[in-house]
Amino acid sequence: MEKIQLRRSLLERRQSMPVSEWREKSDRICAHLETSSLFTQAKTILAYFSFRQEPDISSLFAHTKYRWGFPRCVGNSLSWHLWTSNDSVQIGAYGIVEPHPTAPILDPGEVDLILVPSVASDYQKYRLGYGGGYYDRLLAAADWENKSTIGIVFDFAYLPELPIDPWDKPLKIVCTETGLK
């Protein structure tokens, strides 16, 4: 199946999930992340605000021992901004919640871990994103290519194999509601 059709069918399945099931699975994902050594040893973590029924990892943001960074879409790339639970947010490109443009920008050297939203991931740790290439470009950039990454997906979207392109980069770990892979 091609990426476009696969993406469409997985997004439809994710968005048809009952809210109670989505909440329960999201909570289990967070519990698994909290036991990951990549997570517990990090100081600055890049994350995302859940969109279109992505796994909701917002309960993690209450951990004040971590510095949290969130993306803003700027042109065809992501700009990462420091955010605390006291900071306000705005709706940005594509209807995605993001920090205000005035929030401090995070330097790549400060970042220990990136929690990567994904439509799907496979056993080889490749991800299927939304098709905009934002994370592909980020993970290929010299400042970011060696950062630890955890792809976040529901278990139904953790597949044996995805179609991949030459620019696709594997993640370090994948986390679903059934555990770290």
Rank of each mutant, 00 (worst) to 15 (best):
K172I: 08
Q15V: 14
G179Y: 04
H81T: 10
A120Q: 01
P117N: 06
S121G: 15
L159H: 02
A62G: 04
W83M: 07
A47F: 00
E24H: 13
K3Y: 05
T102V: 08
Y158W: 15
I45G: 07
L82K: 12
K169L: 15
E110F: 11
L82C: 13
P101I: 13
Y135G: 02
Y66G: 02
R8S: 14
A140Y: 10
L138I: 10
A142D: 14
I164N: 01
F39Q: 07
A42P: 02
Q90F: 13
G92E: 07
I57W: 07
L171F: 14
D165C: 12
S85C: 12
S85Y: 05
W144N: 03
C73K: 12
D122C: 04
V116D: 02
W144T: 11
C30T: 15
P99L: 08
D56F: 09
I164L: 11
R72K: 14
E98C: 15
L38C: 05
G133D: 01
S50K: 03
S59G: 05
K25H: 15
P55R: 01
A140M: 14
P108S: 13
T40R: 15
K25M: 11
S58G: 09
V119Q: 03
F70K: 11
V174R: 00
N146R: 08
K172F: 03
D143M: 07
G95N: 07
G131H: 11
N146T: 08
Y123H: 13
L10P: 03
Q5T: 12
I152F: 05
Y135C: 11
V153K: 05
R14I: 15
Q15M: 15
K25F: 14
N86K: 03
M1N: 07
S37M: 02
E12F: 12
L159Y: 02
R67Y: 04
A47G: 10
D56P: 09
F156W: 06
L6K: 03
T64P: 10
Q90G: 11
D168V: 07
I173C: 08
H100L: 12
G69L: 03
P166G: 12
L138W: 02
V111H: 03
S121Q: 03
K125G: 04
